[in-house]
Amino acid sequence: MSEGAQVSEGSEVSVAAEAGRIAVRKTYKLYVGGAFPRSESGRTFEVTDHAGGFWANAALASRKDARDAVVAARKAFPGWSGRTAYNRGQVLYRVAEVLEGRRAQFAAEVRLATGVCRDEALAEVDAAVDRWVWYAGWADKIAQVRGGVNPVAGPFANFSVPEPSGVAAVLAPRDSALLGLVSVLAPAIVGGGTCVLVASARYPLPAITLAEVLATSDLPGGVVNVLTGQVAEVAPWLASHMDVNAIDVTGAPGGLADDLAVAAAGSNLKRVLRLPPVAWTADPGVDRMFGYLETKTIWHPMGL
């Protein structure tokens, strides 16, 4: 909601107008391959604010949208994983910078979505910014923490390096408008992976506004693709997709998460992240980030 920044303090209406002027509302679309397309299905669903008032019509992503998003993520993978870790760290830090600059807008959207008070909304945005900074700093530390030299019993140089699994499907937590979203998204890409993020059906709009931040932060198009819609409709296609390498099922309710895990295993042995529920304000730790990594071991003989 681009006019969010103009929402007056304490206002909880979804459409704000300054005196004497009709606001220009935003059309919330998908984010795929660096562009903002509508759903190919032509469908939308109504999103309300926390008080039940009309906010916007969000795109209702289809199976085809999910597949298009996977294609975009796959296409972006060689470039993103091929960047230096230093560069990936800089891009993630840039995301934090741009997000910080749109602090008021995001706080307004978080308030509108969840109904929390102004200070709480600002605190959530600040925590989200800090989370991008935390992961930005990780980019060029992962290989040394997660990899190493292996002292094999022979004349060989032998070392192990972490590499991204590839394309991930990330189901954003249902209960968080921004911080949970960022907390599952950043670890999926910091190591060089690309992803298709399925936004919370309850709070889909901050995810699209976050996509605007990503689109203007030097993050290559396709590294993050954002779908809005029903997790139960879209996620099964991602879980069984043969060109998806990992899935974080955080945003799926228990029964669906089981089904997704089975489909993910039975199709192409995806890496399934199903971490215990955490408070998004807590120290994120490394498990989620490392869950998207493989270990590659390289041997080369030594000798004169």
Binding site: S165, N245, T297, W299, H300, P301
Partner: peptide, 22 residues
Amino acid sequence: GVVWANTFNRFDPASPFGGYKE
């Protein structure tokens, strides 16, 4: 998961072994 450059089929207990993908 394992790349052998100018060698092949080397194994060692100190060297992680395992696969990507399927």
